[in-house]
Design a protein around this nucleic acid. Sequence first.
DNA 1: GTAATAAACTCGTGCGACGAGCATAAACGA
DNA 2: TCGTTTATGCTCGTCGCACGAGTTTATTAC
Lengths: 401, 401
Amino acid sequence: MASPAFRQGAIRARNARWRGALAVLEEMRREPGVTRAAVARRLGLTTGSATEITARLRDLALLTETQAATSGRGRPTTVLGPHPQGPLVVAVDIRQEDWRCAVAALDGAPVVAEAEAHTHGDPDASIAAIAQAVRRVHDRHGDRVRAVSVAVAATVRNGGVVQSATLGWGDAVDLRALTADLRVPLLIGNDATLAGVAEARRGAAAGAAAALYVTIEVGVGGTLVVDGRAVDGATGAGGEFGHLPFGDSALRCPCGARGCWELTVDGRAIARHLGDPPPRAPRGYGLEALRRAPREAAVRSAVGRAAEAFGGGLAGLVNALDPDVVVLGGLAEPLRAAAEPRFTAALTDGLMRFRRAAPPPVVAAALGETGALHGAAASALDQVLTEDGLNAWAAERSPAM
Amino acid sequence: MASPAFRQGAIRARNARWRGALAVLEEMRREPGVTRAAVARRLGLTTGSATEITARLRDLALLTETQAATSGRGRPTTVLGPHPQGPLVVAVDIRQEDWRCAVAALDGAPVVAEAEAHTHGDPDASIAAIAQAVRRVHDRHGDRVRAVSVAVAATVRNGGVVQSATLGWGDAVDLRALTADLRVPLLIGNDATLAGVAEARRGAAAGAAAALYVTIEVGVGGTLVVDGRAVDGATGAGGEFGHLPFGDSALRCPCGARGCWELTVDGRAIARHLGDPPPRAPRGYGLEALRRAPREAAVRSAVGRAAEAFGGGLAGLVNALDPDVVVLGGLAEPLRAAAEPRFTAALTDGLMRFRRAAPPPVVAAALGETGALHGAAASALDQVLTEDGLNAWAAERSPAM
DNA sequence: GTAATAAACTCGTGCGACGAGCATAAACGA
DNA sequence: TCGTTTATGCTCGTCGCACGAGTTTATTAC
């Protein structure tokens, strides 16, 4: 592992080798269950090239071909799938209450291996437990594990956690311990960002050129995803939409700024409107309020105000970012559903006139609780399915040279 | 021209041909005056490959090599530059008062060929005049002209103008007339978006991973530029930051929404604070106010309020988009300069706490009035310097096959 | 069965890039 | 002034990927 193996100069040529192979693997990943013939057609490959490429990839344990259910005349084609000895990635999702650790092959479907609730108030214990889970997975699969990707309910910057009010962890949490002595790349990402990526690739926004994912948990998060890649800024801390000053500038946000949108949208907002003290668990409070809203007029009104603030802010984001589609995650969808007319009115009213004729559809997230896990697996595979990644894989398997 | 010429199947291979050549051309474009040796080093090419690639590109009239000023020992290398018979693009900038039409070679530096003031209130006359200018350039250079790119002070969507309050043109303006019978691709882009691209590539934000460009003219525009590409959404209408609801929700914006940021930032805001009626020319009014501010306390205070609103909104954008650097264009820089303390205080106060230690630098645009023109040239070259673009160029020059 | 069909396999070719060795043009130094 | 040093350009044999055309194979339809 970590074999340098190649002379400096040949990098470009060595990378060009994988053009066709990578395209095939991406197709297989994007649409598990595609047939070889379909891939060849889509990529404009001749059957000869397809034969060569699949043979090469089979030899490298990057894919397998299985008999396809025949349909119609002609020689039957094969279904492409991940190889049983092929590369794997580990996806971890650290949420407020618990964590999950999953394994995914090149088709990107995470299979949960372990899951556990946090030891409350003790980040070190949680991290140690997760690290052990990762290590067990690694022990089981050896060098097949090519990357570990972590989705965490925290602000992430330059691959590290910057703040994590949600988790109640201090800001000195260092997730690098998760792969301490494993020689495997570790990727850290914000959970909402990764969930957005997952929705844009395989979820409710599949196929969209520019998808805006917005989620409400404690506060508001999300991301714009363009061509399947999150627009997360220079340091990866983009998507903090909750801290756009759409709100009441008299309100000071725990983040340090004032007028933050999320203060007018989440459980804290609803509590304020109802005259309740600030809830210690805004997510739970919000959920409870949404449940009570149908029956209690006061709650309904408070929820409506939050939905209105949410719709208005969303309109601003649509104005500024021009997405194809808006995907709502977490409590965002139930909030809209609880006060649909007020939400939609505010959204429409906030749109620039020329957008109103054909506003982007606002849809519910399709992947639900597994979005972040899917996104983590996807971001890990993004590293594996590169020219460098395949070079490394191939070099390890054929020690010649 | 428009020769199909190629069989369907070979597309992938035919594109792969240009990998090395494109990389070299991009280097030459990114840094006019680079030497062949420097390019080879950066790209990791052997001298043999460099020789081959440059020879091929010279034969195709895509670059020339000129003697470099020798510096130090060793065989002198050559400077790469655009070929005198090489491809060209036409860049047009349509501003509020006038328009300019320029030509650029592969180094992307636009040379203004014609410029003229608008025939006021008559879009058709302006468009006809611009079309003639484009035609004259095309007549002069023939098939060397590969694309026409237009920067326009209007909202652009799906390659067409959607609204253009600034120009005072109706919304039925069809810019496709600009290349009516010329068989040349026409690209339409928002002027602020293109200026942002130019600043990110060669201006004040050169080298930034994520640059946020914000400009104040009539209203607020701009764009986020990631890796040199504008994040302009699904239809190209992104970057309308002026219509984020950071402002006073009691104010209805001509765009149809309410609470738009730009109403609290531009000349209209200053007029309102001074008790003046809404100015017919907000840009000129704003400029005048900025001039008077140093001497007149009331004006200074009104300008300060606008600068504060500007800084606060900018902070929100930084929170949400996480840029490396913020570039101010148009009146934005003078507005900041006129009330620097209030601007900076509002900006800092609006940032999330973890961003305050190292906020992105806020700098003035470097390309000034030529930003949009540079950006238009760049977007046109983006089309030319692709595998398809070079294939077409090569096919036209060697009619064999 | 036999024809029709779709797709896989085989093999010769083209082409871009590599590597190693050679050639060349300047600056340096005795 | 002239060899030495140094950086670069040029030549040519080789490799590997994808192509194209032709052949083979597996299935359905009649």
